[in-house]
Design a binder for these strands. Structure first.
Lengths: 256, 256
DNA sequence: GGGAGGGCAG
DNA sequence: CTGCCCTCCC
């Protein structure tokens, strides 16, 4: 089973390149974030014509998540279900046979001093509780998406300078760690222990890719039964070099 | 001497196609309207690299006129100079040896009931006075541009239905006629007396070109000495079919 | 329908 | 820098 995650930064603008990438890499499941389209306008038909099922939840302009899959998704649910803001356009989950896939677009947080940073920390705490509430660590669960946090210093290009960045601040990292402590393992890191692997290169930093100024903030995380089945993982950086590319690129994990 | 006029609807967006068209058709002078760019951002360098001189006057978002030429423009002036609103981004004039070229983007008028329609009529009256003030009918003068008026019924696709259109209303046509009465002749019409020739196809009418639902509102007009030297004229409709085309297309006139 | 701008967000 | 939206204008 091949699983991929991609922050597409507009599914409408990049649909053709997504379908081309999928035709080439043949993933069974693709978690997509920042579709930036309300459900009425989601390009469902071309995705189905390409042979994929798709579940999605979006809004105008911001956020939006989708799961594309070769087999039909079961038990699709969106949003955090704890009575707080559901953020349905940031979390979508589906089951494929035994395996449950949770796809999230974690709030970025804007600035460390902004109220959205506290919202981000709270969101990650709520997500840990979501996992506690819905799953046991004996369940085969994949949590994938744009988590907007670099786990370790090696997941940022200049960690010394990033202490006050919302995606590297100690509070953000410990909030993410609290989620990982539920029982998730970072599949990519298990196969690639070395530094310098990134999934995101900011549009605003000139020549970010050539300079290697990236961030690893997109992940495929596996619960224990699936960690045991993980066979390989890689980041495909080529799509980031295409004209009109998303600022993120694809992360892929293969499971037995 | 080959003269062309083209409402480009953004010179920045269509610069490459304009330069390609010029390389192919080798005009000596091109009058451009709706450049939609302030002077600081006008793409002067690539035009000069293509071997053309250029005089321009524009603003952000709307209007904007330019004259491109193989020989350097002399005595460049912009705007109506009668003390009323000069509208410098709607009129530019230059001299090339003996020949003076006046390039205008006449106000469209919005709606017959809108104050801009009265402004349009007034603008055409002021333009006639401009010609009276600056030129004699013995001068070789070319007046070209987007005049936003169809001269005759045959210059609109469905004249019966257009009586209240700002580009065909009787008041607009007589205001334009007043300018023509200064002594200008419609060079294209002299060579093509038949109906069905248009320079503008509205983006909002679906398949306008295939249906032949156009307007002839762009003109190259000549004072008597130049009327005598006119040898041919044509509308090149192909650029209107290109992807991302302007809603207008090129009109060309050849003079001995 | 399709330019442009300004604002929001990352 | 690059998405989206909304408003303006034709």
């Amino acid at each position: 089973m091949r699983v991929a995650t991609y922050n597409v930064n507009s599914i409408r603008l990049r649909l053709d390149s997504v379908l081309a990438w999928m035709a080439r890499h043949k993933p069974d499941i693709v978690c997509v974030q920042e579709t930036k389209v309300q459900d009425a306008d989601f390009p469902e038909a071309p995705i189905r014509q390409a042979g994929y099922h798709v579940a999605f939840r979006g809004q105008k302009a911001y956020n939006g998540v989708a799961i594309l899959s070769t087999t039909p998704p079961e038990d699709v649910r969106t949003g955090l279900d704890d009575g707080g803001p559901a953020d349905e356009t940031r979390l979508i989950r589906a089951r494929f046979g035994e395996v449950t896939v949770v796809n999230t677009y974690v709030p970025q947080g804007r600035e460390v001093d902004h109220e959205m940073f506290q919202y981000k920390l709270q969101w990650l705490r709520r997500l840990r509780e979501y996992m506690d509430r819905h799953f046991s660590t004996r369940d085969p669960v994949i949590w994938a998406g744009d988590l907007n946090v670099a786990i370790q210093p090696m997941d940022v290009y200049n960690p010394e300078d990033r202490a006050r960045h919302v995606c590297y601040h100690a509070d953000a990292r410990s909030a993410l760690q609290y989620c990982l402590d539920w029982g998730f393992k970072d599949v990519f890191r298990a196969f690639h222990p070395e530094a310098g692997h990134y999934t995101f290169f900011d549009y605003r930093t000139a020549d970010a890719m050539d300079r290697g100024w990236g961030w690893r903030i997109d992940y495929i995380l596996a619960s224990p039964p699936l960690t045991a089945r993980a066979r390989d993982a890689f980041i495909d950086v080529e799509p980031r070099r295409l004209p009109k590319a998303s600022d993120h690129t694809y992360l892929v994990a293969d499971f037995q």
